[in-house]
Design a protein around this nucleic acid. Structure first.
Lengths: 239, 239
DNA sequence: AAGTGGTCTAGACCACCGT
DNA sequence: CGGTGGTCTAGACCACTTT
């Protein structure tokens, strides 16, 4: 009855995830109704429902009573809400605006290759930008992308977007970020960092090192964020 | 059929949460079997199951096929795993050992009272301690507790525990921490902080400001952690 | 063997949405 | 109104643990 050891609902979840990850059901698409889908996949409505509930918890789909089930699109609001954890000291969230300082392509260093599961020397795109909150430049960011997954990625493309890169990754490259891991430390600003963020050399900065993964759990972006935390905070919830 | 607007499974979850929060079912207790509990609460097995699944996701219970369902106890391992996010630069987790520098009781300042939802001047316990990882002192911590919820809290009690206070809160005061919020910043070490952590004055430190809440979502602990992040990192997962 | 939770099914009814 | 997801129920069968 169940040749594989995995429960049917888990297998079902995987099938649906793949359809989303591979673009069979692109972001924003309306997917078939529960009853129809259950028949197509050959599972009971209850089992399908359990799989859909899991997808909803992972925020891959959005369900609306009376309307239907839609593949989640990485709108700016969504990306901002889930992957941007910086608030001002009063706990308010501001929408960042960004200014690109640099964008070029070159071979990956061993350390970079390791972080993105590439071979040493594989081409990577490097972006450096400043992000401002409420008009004040408070974030300095260096972003690293595997060129293989992002062909033609260059400055003009960046200019078109306001700020949230994850929307661009999904819209232009079909890459949906599913999760990310971050490592935080406090560092002293270097001379060049200090100049860009308009702080003193040696001033304490919050360093956030992030690797973001796609729906197949492959690393697709490495990002080093430096935050001037005099007036801003990084927020986390533990539960 | 459903006079309140809340779904039956949500009401059921609330009832079960209350039994755990109020100690009807203390940590470690075996709770009745699904079938029995469903009958007692007057809901169907499926509905009860949905409530239990939610409790398991919140880590309030642990279910074991063939054995039964148990109220989760805040073992050191558990507390460490869920509420201690500091790793060394290699990504390894170390078990902290702590040394209490100070422990005294006094009236809350307005800022402290606000953080713990107390009235100004209510008594609070203040603890200051150093935590070492792999023998090296890397964490300086100031902890604030409402005296009302923790009568008799004093130094001798702290001496008995190894390190994890959440185990003590639960075991000795019936206070289970359900969730916590943290705000992170980078600061420069003050003279006194620097001396205690054996770093230079002005050295960058990771400041973690945490408020922890009990199962009824009341704030029960405020904690200011300073981490020497030269050899350690704060880890977060976004998904 | 008896008891537990885990899986899977089938269907009724309700609340909400668009036409 | 017809179609959607949301709730609630009832029960069969399986896998695991303990006695």
């Amino acid at each position: 009855m169940n040749p594989a050891r995995r429960p049917l609902y888990a297998q079902t979840e995987e099938i649906l995830t793949r359809r989303i990850a591979e673009g069979t059901w692109p972001p924003g698409a309306l997917i078939p109704a529960e009853a129809e889908l259950a028949v197509e996949l050959g599972v009971s409505p209850g089992t399908l429902r359990k799989a859909l509930a899991a997808l909803e918890r992972r925020r891959l789909i959005e369900r609306h009573q009376g309307r239907g089930t839609y593949v989640a699109a990485h709108t700016s609001e969504r990306a901002l809400f889930h992957f941007f954890r910086v608030f001002d000291v009063e706990g308010r969230k501001h929408t960042p605006t960004s200014f690109v300082l640099d964008c070029r392509t070159g071979p990956a260093t061993p350390e970079e290759a390791a972080a993105l599961a590439l071979d040493q020397g594989d081409a990577v795109h490097r972006v450096e930008r400043i992000r401002a909150l409420a008009g004040e430049p408070v974030i300095l960011e260096r972003i690293l992308l595997p060129a293989m997954r992002f062909p033609g990625f260059a400055l003009p493309l960046l200019r078109e977007m306001e700020d949230e890169l994850y929307v661009l990754y999904q819209r232009d490259y079909g890459v949906t970020i599913g999760r990310a891991e971050e490592w935080l430390a406090a560092i002293g600003a270097s001379e060049t960092q200090a100049a860009k963020l308009r702080v003193w050399p040696g001033a304490p900065l919050l360093e956030i090192s992030r690797v973001a993964y796609d729906l197949a759990d492959r690393p697709v972006e490495r990002r080093l964020t430096l935050l001037d935390s005099r007036l801003h905070r990084y927020h986390a919830t533990l539960d």
